[in-house]
Simulated scan of single mutants.
Amino acid sequence: MSIRSQALAPVRPAMPALFWSVMGGTAAAMLDLAVAAAYWGARGVAPDRIFQSIAAWLLGPVAFTGGAPTVALGAVLYAGLLSGVMDAYRRLARRFPVLLHRPLTGGALYGASMYGLIFLIFVPLLSAATPVAHAWQWHAICVAAYVLLVGIPAALLARIQAH
């Protein structure tokens, strides 16, 4: 290919940051929900109930009687939440470049922090869901999932977008 034809070749625009946040957040949400489904499924809980428990953040206990619409609401709500979590890391990393230079450490700490912030503070204090106590093993699995499926991927996506 000549230099002239290379110069005239169409330039493929980079995908906007919002696209990567939504894709990363949706993937993280579905993987995290798969972990929840495996854990709770082994204890006899139907997967629908997991999605409905997220819908209950907005609707309260009525979410468990809402059928497919509340299952869909839970999926969309959780994907949206984790898309925001992904985007927040990217924004923080622009302000604090060490988060880009140390994506594994920064992402792991971020993921664990986001789990605590969302599930130990925001959901119990700000949602319409009825608080339920869980065993420490469940929290340990959730923190590990948030580190591996949310925090570190958020850091790696932010790093890719910065370059």
Rank of each mutant, 00 (worst) to 15 (best):
M1Q: 09
M1G: 15
I3M: 11
R4W: 04
S5G: 06
Q6H: 13
A7T: 05
A7I: 07
L8F: 08
A9Q: 13
P10G: 05
P10M: 06
V11R: 15
V11C: 03
R12G: 04
R12N: 03
P13K: 13
P13Q: 13
A14N: 08
A14P: 02
M15E: 04
M15A: 13
L18S: 07
F19Y: 13
F19K: 03
S21N: 11
V22N: 01
V22E: 01
V22Q: 05
M23C: 09
G25C: 02
T26F: 03
A27C: 13
A28H: 04
M30H: 01
M30K: 03
L33T: 06
V35L: 08
A36K: 03
Y39C: 02
Y39N: 04
W40F: 15
W40Y: 15
G41V: 06
R43C: 01
R43I: 05
R43D: 05
V45E: 03
P47H: 04
F51G: 02
F51N: 02
Q52M: 12
Q52H: 06
Q52L: 07
Q52F: 02
S53H: 07
S53R: 06
S53E: 01
I54T: 14
A56T: 05
L58H: 04
L58R: 05
G60W: 12
G60V: 13
P61Q: 13
V62F: 00
V62C: 03
V62Q: 11
A63Q: 07
G66K: 12
G67N: 02
V71Y: 00
V71Q: 01
V71K: 08
V76P: 00
V76M: 10
V76I: 15
Y78S: 00
A79T: 08
G80L: 02
L82E: 01
G84C: 07
G84L: 01
V85N: 08
V85S: 02
V85K: 12
M86I: 12
M86H: 12
R90A: 14
L92I: 04
R95W: 12
F96I: 14
L99Q: 12
L99N: 10
H101Q: 14
P103A: 12
T105F: 09
G106I: 11
A108M: 10
L109S: 06
L109W: 07
L109R: 06
Y110A: 09
Y110E: 10
A112I: 04
Y115W: 12
G116D: 04
F119M: 09
L120Q: 08
I121L: 15
S127Y: 03
S127A: 13
S127K: 10
S127Q: 10
A128P: 00
A129T: 12
T130K: 14
T130Y: 01
P131K: 14
P131M: 12
W136K: 13
W138H: 11
H139W: 06
I141P: 00
I141T: 11
V143A: 06
V143H: 10
A145T: 06
V147F: 04
V147I: 15
L148A: 13
L149E: 03
P153Y: 09
A155N: 05
L156Q: 10
L157P: 00
A158C: 04
I160K: 13
Q161I: 02
A162E: 05
A162D: 09
H163S: 11
H163N: 10
